[in-house]
């Protein structure tokens, strides 16, 4: 049986009186691809932020490869070999595509190896023609692709992506899907997503969030046909 790379126990996050994440128990195996879905305000992003260290959970524990990382800073979690992409694009606008990816590679490799790896990644993502452009000049889809590239170049064993397909064209999404499939050869991937189309095309197991808690966790087809899930999404009473 594959190793558990990410686990949360009783993860709870409260903002004042609002419980954004409610006693979430979550387990992820190595090289698994998991999508987290749920309507707006279901607590997906809060859960994501607690796991990545952007928020410290009110209660509960987060474990990565068996090590407790609750309350760690994002840079400490990233240093373990965890690649993170936030909901809003977080890239280095004034720097070139090459420099962006090089900086990500440099964290784990010496200078020249980082250069080789970033060149390789630029080729793999077909970014060669814009490698010298600064990120600020690029289109949204290209920026997303670069951000995925700088996550991938660090050779993570766990990748956490918050809405990677948001605002992208169909062609970009297709390319993104290919990159993510590539990632799952070496890493477990968690994707927080809204876009059902995208999830159908990529997901295997899906975890559904509703009102901060896990509603169900099953294969994508069964989740999509589940009456309760449909009700949650369409806002009907069950």
């Amino acid at each position: 049986m594959a190793e558990t790379v990410l686990e949360t126990q009783g993860l709870t996050m409260r903002f004042g009186g609002v419980t954004a994440s409610d006693n979430v128990n979550f387990k992820l195996k190595a090289r698994e691809l998991r999508c987290l879905i749920g309507p707006n305000g279901a607590g997906k992003s809060t859960f994501f932020k607690c796991v990545t260290g952007l928020l410290t959970p009110t209660e509960g524990h987060v474990f990565m490869r068996g090590q407790e990382v609750t309350g760690w800073h994002p840079h400490q979690i990233a240093s373990l070999g965890v690649g993170i992409k936030t909901q809003t694009p977080n890239v280095l606008d004034a720097l070139s595509v090459r420099e962006n990816i090089w900086l990500a590679a440099r964290r784990f490799h010496p200078v020249s190896e980082a250069r080789d790896r970033s060149d390789e990644m630029i080729d793999r993502l077909a970014l060669g023609s814009i490698a010298r452009s600064s990120l600020g000049q690029l289109a949204h889809g290209e920026r997303q692709r670069v951000e995925l590239g700088l996550v991938a170049v660090a050779d993570p064993w766990l990748v956490l992506l918050d809405e990677p397909a948001a605002g992208m064209s169909a062609q970009d999404v297709e390319r993104m899907t290919a990159i993510i499939h590539d990632l799952t050869k070496t890493a477990a991937v968690v994707i927080v997503e809204h876009d059902m189309q995208f999830i159908r095309s990529i997901a295997d197991t899906v975890t559904v969030f509703h009102q901060g808690a896990v509603l169900m966790e099953d294969h994508v087809d069964r989740v999509m046909s589940d009456a309760q899930v449909r009700a949650v999404y369409l806002g009907k009473k069950t």
């Binding site: 840079h75 977080n90 890239v91």
Partner: peptide, 14 residues
């Protein structure tokens, strides 16, 4: 320079 551009991203890079 990267930190000047985006502290969050540099933190997420480790």
């Amino acid at each position: 320079l990267g930190i000047r551009e985006n502290e969050v991203r540099m933190g997420l890079m480790g």
